[in-house]
Design a binder for these strands. Structure first.
Lengths: 332, 332
DNA sequence: TTGAAAGCGGTACCAT
DNA sequence: ATGGTACCGCTTTCAA
């Protein structure tokens, strides 16, 4: 590993001071045209790249953000990622993705990440939530669909409302009285709200809302497994409200395998509106989430709060409306 | 943003030199017990965390790797990630994930990443392949399922062989003569080999292997869309060999929608053996890939070649065997 | 066992 | 417009 060339090498060869080289690198200060050209030529010839480490240390700035996601699955993350990436493009800021696959190792990974970025965007809830608050004292953090935290910015969609609405549709329009929620409520505040909205719709309609959830992780495979059990129940539900589209698709697969017709024999709804939702037969009634918009806003918030000196501004809290998309799996 | 506490603050309060503080931080040098305790106490009290930037600059080492993935989709990445993460756990090295969603921005992102890590693991092929070779001169890189490159390490599975074998099974065991490959061949060397293995099996059996591919991106949605077109052809194929399980699942959905029975009316095979493959009905005949193992090996190679001084060692090239998993979608 | 001081690769203030 | 130089936070000789 031969020593890499530094700003001092350039200075020497161009016969100027390091200060001047630094100036032409940053382009922020005025340098005589002739001098600039000379320095640029030398940098070119030496194929000099300023060390990010040196810069970062001197400026105490990383020019990097972090995007923390609870897993690789789900097409929804692709949307957030894309929105995030798009608004960061051209700002000179890049970002790291942390995929929190391992709950146990997460705190270490997050702490490490915190030493390498100027701000973070965290999706979902984690056991290390207190750690997040700690980090938030040092840099802006925006939480998407996470636990409320006065120290961080937040972006949330109105899950309670949407879940309530979609459930209501099933009850009011299609006269269903026996419903089941399929998914995990504990996992994140986001999911909890979906379940609570569901429960509220039941109680509003005077339906007993106890014992109406069947646990299931949020994948097609789990949905398939869970639904094939449920379909064998003696008194199977008239409608299954799924926590995500993935679960719903799995559920619908279980139905066709069991020879149960959707929506005639049983109604199914999803949540998220993934690409598959509109393609499957019957097309899935679901809830559209503006993932791209969410990612974009997160990045904007981060930019705002790192660029400005005003570090002490109060947190932004964004609430996004979401829309129920009625297709055919509900009986329509 | 108040100045964070530094090693000098600790030194002053503990009444020792910064050198000594550095020694107790690293734990690599001998320090008198009493002194160490005193310093530790001060660090504790001040809740001092050494600046990674300072360390990195002094040591010229980041203690970080990068994992570059061509997208968020596919459960397969979760396996690689997990293997990678597991072998890195406890080494004090963390890693960044780069999700190459945007082809245009990829070179910038990769170059940026290169300034922040000691080694990278790159999955798949990209337009910026020459950039990768350049970076490989400065740090170890392992390519998974990528273009061959003498400057980098590599891990590959025997896709040609496996694709050939699974196709052969269809031909020999099930007497199929009219086959179609569903997927994208151009996207990566990995996929290309799958298609080439398919073609080889055809020609070995004396079947015309021109015009036997139908383009389709590697998602369920695409598989569903493509298959529903194919199924309407006047002379539909007897078997569809899909580039991935996702495509295969989409294909099977299209079949049930069209009232075409798998495997009676048409045979379908997948590739990757995702969780859903064994759950779906009929269970998918597919190819198992040791993703976890791949991720683990990649990390090991990186560790080996960054820890040792011997930077100039010759690249490692790993070839992993893969196994065809025969279930029912092929007719068995 | 400990300390003083010279880097690591930049930035930016203060002179000139 | 340019140069000299003191940092940024940490590691690591070299001496004591």
């Amino acid at each position: 590993m031969k020593r890499s060339i530094t700003i001092r090498d350039v200075a020497k060869q161009a016969d100027v001071s390091v200060a001047t080289v630094s100036r032409v690198i940053s382009g922020k200060s005025v340098v005589a045209d002739r001098t600039r050209d000379r320095v640029n030529a030398v940098m070119e010839r030496l194929s000099f790249e300023p060390s990010r480490l040196g810069q970062a240390l001197a400026l105490n700035r990383h020019d990097a953000f972090a995007l923390v996601l609870p897993g690789l699955g789900g097409p929804l993350f692709a949307g957030i990622l894309d929105g995030f990436e798009n608004t960061l493009a051209g700002t000179g800021i890049t970002f790291h993705v942390l995929v929190a696959q391992n709950e146990e190792r997460f705190p270490v990974q997050l702490a490490d990440l915190a030493t390498r970025v100027d701000g973070m965007c965290v999706f979902g809830a984690y056991t290390g939530d207190s750690l997040i608050s700690t980090i938030a004292q040092r840099m802006p953090i925006v939480r998407i669909a996470g636990s409320p935290d006065p120290a961080t910015h937040s972006i949330n969609v109105d899950n309670f409302e949407a879940a309530c609405e979609i459930t209501n549709h099933l009850i009011e329009t299609h006269g269903v009285r026996k419903l089941l929620f399929l998914g995990e409520a504990a996992q994140s505040p986001d999911l909890q709200l979906r379940y609570q909205g569901f429960q509220r719709a039941l109680s509003d309609a005077g339906i007993d809302n106890r014992d109406v959830i069947f646990p299931c992780s949020l994948t097609q495979a789990s949905g398939l497994k869970a639904a094939s059990i449920i379909l064998r129940w003696p008194d199977r539900p008239e409608a299954i409200v799924c926590a995500t589209d993935e679960v719903a698709v799995g559920t619908m697969m279980a139905c066709t395998e069991a020879g149960v017709s959707v929506p005639r024999d049983i109604k199914v709804t999803g949540y998220d509106d993934i690409e598959l939702a509109s393609l499957i037969t019957p097309a899935l009634t679901t809830v559209d989430q503006p993932f791209h918009e969410i990612g974009a806003r997160a990045a904007q918030i981060l930019l705002r709060h790192t660029r400005k000196a005003a570090q002490a501004e109060k947190p932004e809290n964004h609430q996004l409306a979401i829309e129920v998309i009625v297709r055919h799996s509900c009986g329509c």
